[in-house]
Computed example of a mutant assay.
Amino acid sequence: MKILVIVPAFNEEEGLVKVAEQFHGINDVDVLIINDCSKDATSEVGRKLGFNVIDLPCNLGIGGAVQTGYKYAYDNGYDIAIQVDGDGQHNPAYIKDLIKPIKEGRADLVIGSRYLKKEGFQSTFLRRVGINYFSNLIYLLQKKRITDPTSGFRACNRRVIELFSARYPNDYPEPESIVYLLRNNYKTEEVPVVMNERFGGESSINSFKSIYYMIKVTLAIVIDNMRKIGLT
């Protein structure tokens, strides 16, 4: 199976070094860096490390960067696409666990969750509040418990690649995309993973943006869910 690892990167020149170390010796996947118009040397560092790099002409945000990767995966015939953050938090040793339910036909989307076994870095307090909030919101609307709905460590099959290449949320896209898949009867699973602290760079979501995104994404999720019951 053709497997593509999509790494959205904004000002991640430090983190990409860690990513390269983590992927050293893993030869059965292709790694694609989506440089989201970084202001640092993300593009140059990515190429020097031997990665394929797409340089976006303007900053599209996490949603646009990731969707670029899905478009690439769809156009180039990949069977599985895996999202991995460019800051070194996600350990590729867990890729085999992520793709196993997909290979076995049990899931369309598999999420790496740090909260199934609660090992390793558990994120900041503010992020944990947001994660718990979206977990409860998704359960309320879809009756499916997702313990780590904001996890950027995810794998999906060809069906979802095609869908995401055409339709993907812009801001804080993980919870919204999960609800969309669930309401359209795609199979979603979680597997336990251990995540690291950010190796370098800065998160694109600060405290103010976190509150803004929570409100914005909540409205998007509720409106999208209303389509299921024919109210919009």
Rank of each mutant, 00 (worst) to 15 (best):
I3W: 00
I3E: 03
V5N: 00
I6S: 02
V7S: 08
A9Q: 00
N11V: 05
N11A: 11
E12L: 11
E12H: 10
E13T: 07
L16E: 02
L16H: 01
V19T: 06
A20Y: 08
Q22R: 09
F23A: 00
H24E: 13
N27H: 13
V29I: 13
V29A: 07
D30E: 15
D30P: 06
L32H: 05
I34K: 04
N35S: 14
C37L: 11
K39Q: 11
T42V: 00
T42C: 01
G46A: 12
K48W: 01
K48H: 09
L49G: 05
G50R: 01
G50M: 01
I54S: 01
D55M: 08
P57E: 12
L60P: 02
G61R: 03
I62C: 08
G63S: 05
G63N: 04
V66W: 00
V66D: 00
K71N: 07
Y72M: 05
Y72K: 07
Y74S: 15
Y74I: 07
I80T: 07
I80L: 06
A81E: 08
Q83A: 10
Q83E: 14
G86W: 05
D87K: 08
D87A: 14
G88W: 00
G88F: 03
H90E: 04
N91V: 11
N91C: 08
N91F: 10
A93D: 13
I95D: 00
L98I: 09
I99V: 15
K103R: 15
A107Q: 04
D108Q: 11
L109T: 03
V110Q: 02
G112H: 02
S113T: 10
R114Y: 07
K117D: 10
K117E: 14
K118P: 05
E119D: 13
G120Y: 09
F121T: 09
Q122K: 14
T124Y: 03
F125W: 05
L126E: 11
R127T: 06
R127L: 06
R128D: 08
R128K: 13
V129N: 02
G130Y: 06
I131V: 15
Y133M: 06
S135I: 09
N136W: 08
N136A: 12
I138H: 09
L141I: 15
Q142H: 11
R145I: 11
I146Q: 01
I146D: 01
T147K: 11
D148R: 11
P149D: 06
S151C: 12
G152S: 10
A155N: 10
C156T: 07
N157M: 01
R158V: 09
E162Q: 13
L163G: 04
Y168V: 05
Y168F: 15
P169C: 04
D171H: 09
Y172R: 08
E174A: 11
E176S: 11
E176Q: 14
S177P: 03
I178S: 01
Y180S: 11
L181E: 00
L182F: 09
L182H: 04
R183D: 14
N184F: 11
Y186W: 03
E189N: 09
V193S: 06
V194L: 10
M195F: 03
N196L: 13
R198A: 10
F199L: 06
G200P: 05
S207C: 12
F208D: 13
I211F: 13
I215F: 13
V217T: 15
V217A: 14
L219G: 04
L219I: 05
L219C: 02
I221Q: 07
D224C: 03
N225A: 14
M226W: 12
K228G: 12
I229Q: 12
G230P: 03
L231C: 02
